[in-house]
Design a protein around this nucleic acid. Structure first.
Lengths: 194, 194
DNA sequence: ATTATCTATAGATCTATAGATAATGC
DNA sequence: ATTATCTATAGATCTATAGATAATGC
């Protein structure tokens, strides 16, 4: 039953990393929350870095499931944007998740390899989703081709990363999902055929 | 000559905080770079937190000078947006500064009071600059009134916070200042009278 | 007198390992 | 046999303070 233990450790580690960042997180505290000793934890994840990697993997898997659905079919064209908006809606209702992403996004910049690689890959994936969506919508005759799809993608990605910070500073004032929705709609509208 | 020492300490501390974050920064390393012992440094700044506060104050003072100019006159209406774009242009050419802002922006979310208060205040100020600019431009007859100026401000602020992260992950790919410029122009254009 | 330094050190972390013991799975 | 635990601990930090000494400013 090592798997249930591991899953439980990853779960409490997610909370710890979200609340204290990678550096501030304490393996001993995670172990205590998971109900075992600190070396007990290190039996399952040999280093702090590997534990972080496990947390990120679980995180990404959940996002992928939400975006691609159970069937694993990629939404095309305009449907990709709707799916993206839905994903942001759902995720923005999980404060812990928002905080984990916000905190690790900048620690990725300082920190060593695993977080950095993870964030780059995450951004690359989002960029692909957006540029593919735009291209397919143009091919389908729903939109005219975007002049600079990569830049449009970067804008939306930056917006999301930035909104997380604002939302954490002031959850009641900023409606992350609404502003993202609105910005995606602006983009689509500006490319709509008349 | 305590002032020159203090200024030097703040200077090297800025680099240390930018590179390692607040938590990861080491007072001993900062002291060494500044050419004095660690307790020697703590004679000038009694705690790590006060040192951070000093770094943030110097940082803000420079931004204020760049935005308001030497005369300290606030640019009004459309001029505020031009000044803001210029500020972003200049700041984006200082990698250390970009990194300091990016790193502290999320640590502000985790961390204690000083960083958190600083970031909130910084966001509040930017929001005011943008909403005032929009209102004044409408009063002057340059633009029509924005439906939701606060949301427009939040979008631009989030964009900037997010672009810093992207720029740090991949400086050659992302042109922060260009994308900010473009987004401000989009906003202005959408409100222009025909 | 006050300000600026230094050495030495207390006291609190933290990660990771060594080595022993209990529980599980063939 | 292997997997899962534990206690104990090494070894590396880090911030902040105590207490002494040198330099500076009236």
């Amino acid at each position: 039953m090592g798997d249930a233990r591991r899953a439980r450790i990853v779960e409490v580690a997610t909370r710890e990393f979200a609340q204290h960042g990678y550096r501030g997180a304490s393996i001993a505290r995670i172990a205590e929350s998971a109900g075992l000793s600190q070396p007990g934890l290190l039996h399952h994840f040999r280093t702090k870095e590997r534990l972080l990697t496990a947390v990120l993997e679980v995180r990404d898997a959940r996002d992928a499931e939400r975006f691609f659905g159970e069937a694993g079919t990629r939404p095309r064209g305009l449907a990709a944007f709707e799916r993206l908006q839905d994903l942001v809606d759902r995720n923005s209702r999980e404060p812990l998740l928002v905080q984990l992403l916000a905190v690790l996004s900048t620690e990725a910049v300082i920190g060593g390899d695993p977080a950095r690689r993870w964030l780059r890959e995450r951004h690359r994936l989002m960029r692909t989703v957006i540029t593919d969506g735009l291209r397919e919508a143009a091919d389908a005759g729903d939109l005219r081709p975007a002049a600079d799809p990569d830049t449009q993608a970067d804008r939306l990605i930056a917006l999301l990363d930035g909104l997380r910070i604002q939302w954490l500073l002031d959850p009641d004032r900023v409606d992350m999902a609404r502003i993202f929705r609105l910005s995606v709609d602006d983009l689509i509208t500006s490319l709509r055929l008349h």
